[in-house]
């Protein structure tokens, strides 16, 4: 560590390149979490197809969304269940 960096450390001043690096890492992370507009629509169609094998659901009241915060992103999928289908392969009583 040379004198300048020592002095900066003591004065608790960070280099502008450290700020650049931090911002860059954050930007790249959020860039990658960004999704194309039709991706969510396609995902919803696929999800409905899979879930419909097990449950009867109301296609109209489905909500799918991505929630972003500084820490993480979450995929939120919300659907009321109308009824459960009988398990396939189990004979009806």
């Amino acid at each position: 560590m040379n004198f300048n960096t020592l002095l900066k450390k003591l004065m608790n001043k960070s280099d502008s390149k450290d700020i650049a690096k931090k911002r860059l890492k954050f930007a790249l992370l959020t860039d990658k979490l960004e999704i194309k507009t039709d991706t969510l629509g396609n995902l919803q169609k696929d999800l409905v197809e899979v879930i419909s094998r097990y449950f009867e659901i109301d296609n109209e009241s489905i909500k799918i969304d991505i929630q972003r915060s500084e820490e993480c992103s979450a995929l939120i999928f919300n659907t009321p269940i109308i009824s459960a289908h009988r398990q396939m392969g189990i004979p009806a009583a």
Binding site: N4, T5, K8, D15, S16, K17, D18, A20, K21, L24, K25, L28
Partner: peptide, 16 residues
């Protein structure tokens, strides 16, 4: 500028 901490070093860029 890299030395004075005011430019990203190539190591920073490669790491990112």
């Amino acid at each position: 500028m890299v030395k004075s901490g005011n430019m990203l070093s190539h190591e920073d860029v490669v790491e990112v």
